[in-house]
């Protein structure tokens, strides 16, 4: 449980970091909070020859600019719990953060790391998809803006290319008449999720006008629950038939099976958590009473 030899480089600026990553290519990895990368190095599952420490870079910002919430790659998970805009406008995001690891992981882990690592059960990739976020990636060749829906390709696989790193994630601010919730089941409170579901609805005149639902634990990357989203359209907030939506989603999936959970169990959880997340979102919408 000791890493293979590697060289450590402290990036002095973003350009410096990108130049180093360009130089090292597949052999280089940016080091943020190290909450996934370092254990994997100690288990020798990851063997980067060069670590580029980006912790000194000014990437720990959370800012609202117009209709967009920009979160810098180095923002640590625990910070969302204190950010007013997350609590008020991104309820599902706020719910999800409480399911990320332990307090130590939340105080060190970064959004850039979580997004780039793309653990199949991680919360933040699901949150990024739930809000239709855009991943901002930079390399020595410039910037790429990648929709979250197109970013996560499989377990630990993303659209990032060698030499490229996540610098920020942009979340469009949800409209005023919207609400969301995030639900998770895991063996222990801090574990990798068995299944998690986030739901975000928009509404008008007491009825749902649009829904976006994302689940982990079904495939090896977060997936949209499109049949459930469609089933909810036009349903009243007070009787949204969330159970039917959950069933509609579960019928069309063929979940993975492993030592934690069978495919059948995951299917059942996907239906139940979809239903609960939608019900909670509707309840929040009704409580807000903003019509």
């Amino acid at each position: 449980m000791r890493p293979t030899p590697f060289e450590y480089h402290r990036a002095e600026s973003l350009d410096h970091a990108l130049a180093l990553l360009a130089e090292f290519g597949e052999e280089g990895r940016p080091l943020g909070g190290g909450q996934s990368l370092v254990p994997m190095m100690n288990l020798r599952l990851a063997r980067p020859a060069h670590l580029v420490d980006i912790n000194g870079l000014p990437l720990d910002f959370i800012e609202v600019e117009g209709d967009v919430l920009r979160v810098g790659a180095l923002v640590r998970h625990e910070r969302y719990l204190k950010e007013k805009v997350i609590g008020e406008r991104f309820a599902a995001f706020h719910d999800a953060v409480q399911w990320i690891g332990h307090p130590t992981i939340r105080s060190r882990g970064t959004i850039g790391g979580s997004i780039a690592h793309a653990d199949p059960s991680a919360e933040l990739p699901a949150v990024a998809m739930l809000y239709g976020a855009t991943i901002i990636a930079r390399s020595a060749n410039g910037e790429r803006r990648i929709a979250a829906d197109d970013f996560f390709l499989g377990a630990y696989m993303t659209a990032l290319e060698a030499g490229e790193m996540v610098v920020a994630v942009e979340f469009p601010l949800p409209p005023a008449h919207s609400a969301g919730a995030f639900m998770e089941i895991s063996e222990r409170r801090s574990d990798f999720a068995t299944v998690s579901v986030g739901a975000q609805i928009t509404f008008s005149g007491g009825s749902i006008t649009g829904a976006r639902i994302v689940a982990t634990g079904v495939e090896l990357q977060p997936i949209r629950a499109i049949p459930a989203e469609e089933a909810l359209s036009g349903k009243p907030l007070s009787a949204c038939e969330a159970r039917a939506a959950g069933r509609a989603f579960a019928e069309g999936i063929d979940p993975i099976s492993d030592n934690v959970a069978s495919s059948e169990y995951r299917r059942s959880l996907a239906a139940e958590l979809t239903s609960r997340a939608v019900e909670k979102a509707c309840q929040r919408a009704l409580e807000a009473g903003q019509e």
């Binding site: 288990l43 063996e187 222990r188 409170r189 801090s190 574990d191 990798f192 030592n259």
Partner: peptide
């Protein structure tokens, strides 16, 4: 063996 780390071998924690 498939349970060779604490990610796979789940010990009881204070939360449980």
């Amino acid at each position: 063996p498939l349970s060779t780390s604490f990610a796979d071998y789940l010990m009881p924690l204070a939360t449980e």
